[in-house]
Amino acid sequence: MDSHSVATAPGELVGGVDPHSHPSFLRHHFESVGQQREAASFGMWIFLLTEVMFFGGMFCAYLIFRNWYHPAFVAGSNTLDITLGTTNTAVLIGSSFTMAMAVYSAEMRRRSQLILFLTLTIVLGFAFLGIKAVEYHQKFVDHHIPGPNFSIQEFVHPSNPHAIPLSPDMAQKTQIYFSLYFAMTGMHALHMIIGISLLFFMVWRASQNAYTEGHIMPVENFGLYWHFVDIVWIFLFPLLYLISRYR
């Protein structure tokens, strides 16, 4: 976990090397910067473990219902826009890259570069949410949002020539698919929104030189969180969009 070493600028002592220098960011209850970093990083991994369990509940529900109502899930995933989905995947992976670059910039103590990459991550995050909003809107137009206005018309009499029409009882089950689709992507989007809010805060802190004087831990930990959110999408995308595409 602790693969990075603190980069040293020439002529400067870094906390942990000299026991008498106490960097301002070292909290009183830690013995050394190294201990503080290890603790924070370890804590973040533990937190991500709880996040895995959090999403795990929904993945479990998805697997069970997919197994039961396979035709409905196939039909449901075929109504999703694969172009938008793929674009979004690319956007999100891009944002992970800019985030990784932000961590690198913080290590290299390049303030303006750090701010640039954090801002780029924000922009890509908003791009993702924007595209997601377009997709959600499409579902709204199609009456594919679970609830009283849900319509099974598209599944009983599909407009897509490749699609296999479903019998009405199976078509009803597409509602379960869309419930899970909205619950899972919605939870994912919520994580994105929380992440973007934190990014705004970090841009402000970065402009005050908070992360470019050796204290890169917050950037690093946020990077872990952002990559985790990315990875959740890497699982959601194939499960919701790709499996059993008609072609």
Partner: peptide
């Protein structure tokens, strides 16, 4: 009776109406 097309017996197509 309620979900005729959930599992379809071999040799038949799921055309039974839904009595849910």
């Amino acid at each position: 009776i309620l979900n005729p097309s959930l599992h379809v017996p071999a040799g038949f197509v799921p055309i039974m109406p839904n009595y849910q």
